[in-house]
Structure formats: C-alpha cells, structure tokens
C-alpha cells in the first residue's frame, strides 16, 4: 500500500519528466561532448569528420603555438596552486574566527562580506581590481594575477570550509582543551584534521576557479603574460583551429579529475 501510494506521487511519474531531463542534459553536455569528440578529428576542418587521430594533441605540444601554450599552462598552474593555497589558508582562518569566535558584533555582516564577492559581477571586480593596481602603482604581471586570484578565490574556498566547520561540534575542541591540549594543539591536532575534507574541497574549488578565470585575469595581466584561458582566447581570435579543442578537452579533463577527487574526499567523512 505504502509503496503504491508513494509511487503515485513520485516525481518520476510526472508528465514530461523524462523529456525535460533529457533536454537539460543535452543542453548542458552536448557542446562538451562535441568538442571532446572533434578534438580527435584528423581533419583541419572544425566540422568535417575525417577519422580518429591524435594529431591536434601532438600539435598542442609540438606545433607552432606549442611554446605559447606551454608557458601559458605553466603560468596557469603556478597561479592556481599559489592562489588556491593562500586563499584556502585565509578562508580556514576566517571560518575558524567566524564560526568558533562565538558571538561578536558585525558577525552577520562579516558573513555577508566574505560571500558577497560571489554575487558581484566579475567584470566589476575585474575593473575595480585593475583600477586598484593602477592607483597604487603596481606593475601588471604574474604577481598582479596571483594577488587578484588569491583575493577572489577566498569566498570560493570559504564555502565548503565553513560548511564543514559547522558540522564539527565544538565539544571536540573542548575535549582537547580538557585533556591538557593548548589552544594551538586543539586547533592543529583536532580541528584541522576534522576539517580536512572541507579544506581539501575548498582548495580544489579555488584551484578550478583560478585555473578557469578569464575576465579578471585578462584585465590585470601584464603585456606578454598569458594564462591558458587568455592564450586560448588570443589564439581563437586569430582563427579557430582544432588544436583549441584538444586544449579545451585536456582542461576539461583536469576539471573532471579535480571534481572526482573532491567527491571522494567529501565522501570519506572522518567524523563518522
């Protein structure tokens, strides 16, 4: 009885459920699938299929544009690693202060301020950051990108970290203090290990956001400094070649890998 009744109201039985689901999946993933498939095309054409080949992947690493892409990729990874590391550390401390700091004045305001950048249009942040660097006379280059990325990655890193910290009861730290740990020991030996899944998720999210960023990077980068997204954009402006699809597919692969890691980390909940 109970099963038939619940089956009746099961959302799967609603009219058009399957069709709309399929449509959404198609819109979301069809372009990615097409790009991925055509990155293995043997043809010089973007759209004519001439058989499977790895020529465009080879082209990315050895072709005329390969130097440019290699430097851009190296820049991207260096920037992403530094920005993700620093922003994760700042976000961890911010979460500790805001969630473990008890009640303090402007606590709600602080919560708002740290997540507001997520809602601000990126172009506004980009322009503001550029104006800021100009006004303090900072030469644009790799350093400006790293600083800008670190700043805008903080709210992204903060989200999973604070969510995690809210799930860790403060009695664990109290128990540690009760058992003669100093505040620092309670933090490093108890709180940080318990927060680790959140910290890793925060790092990965920040890393991906930094790796993908185009708008802010394009504004604050110095002349001649390229990251993968800006290099790809520059290359596309001079005419689309299938090697772009190969790079995009590889970038997609990195993202998928990161998301997978993040998924398994969050599944291995060490408080349970």
């Amino acid at each position: 009885m109970a099963t038939s009744k619940s089956a009746k109201f099961d959302i799967k039985t609603y009219g058009g459920f399957k069709a709309i689901t399929m449509l959404c999946l198609l819109v979301l993933y069809a372009p990615l699938v097409v790009v991925t498939i055509y990155s293995f095309n043997a043809s010089v054409s973007l759209t004519n299929w001439e058989g499977i080949s790895l020529r465009w992947y080879v082209d990315v690493f050895t072709g005329p544009e390969s130097e440019k892409f290699k430097i851009a990729a190296l820049n991207s990874f260096v920037i992403a690693i530094i920005a993700a590391t620093v922003s994760t550390m700042i976000a961890t401390l911010a979460a500790t202060a805001m969630i473990r700091g008890g009640k303090f004045k402007l606590r709600t305001v602080s919560f708002g301020l740290i997540s507001l950048p997520l809602m601000v249009p990126e172009i506004v942040t980009a322009v503001a950051t550029l104006i800021f660097f100009n006004s303090i006379g900072f030469d644009r280059g790799l350093m400006t990108i790293i600083l800008a990325h670190t700043a805008f990655c903080i709210p992204f890193a903060y989200l999973p970290i604070s969510a995690r910290m809210q799930g860790v009861e403060d009695t664990y730290e109290q128990a540690a203090l009760d058992l003669y740990a100093t505040k620092r020991q309670a933090f490093t030996k108890i709180l940080v290990p318990l927060m680790m899944p959140g910290i890793i998720s925060g790092f990965i999210l920040a890393f991906i956001v930094s790796l993908d960023d185009f708008i802010i990077t394009n504004f604050v980068k110095g002349a001649g400094v390229e990251t993968l997204p800006t290099a790809i954009f520059g290359s596309v402006k001079q005419g689309m070649k299938p090697n772009i699809m190969a790079i995009s597919t590889m970038l997609l692969g990195v993202s998928v890998l990161m998301v997978t890691i993040s998924y398994f980390v969050s599944k291995s909940d060490n408080t349970k």
């Binding site: 664990y172 128990a175 290990p193 318990l194 349970k272």
Partner: peptide, 13 residues
Amino acid sequence: VNTVFQNYALFPH
C-alpha cells in the same frame, strides 16, 4: 580535572 562529555566527544579521526 577531566570531563566525560554527554555526547562523549571522542576524536573521530
């Protein structure tokens, strides 16, 4: 002094 907490607060990791 040491405490036995209501929810035990054993360190899960």
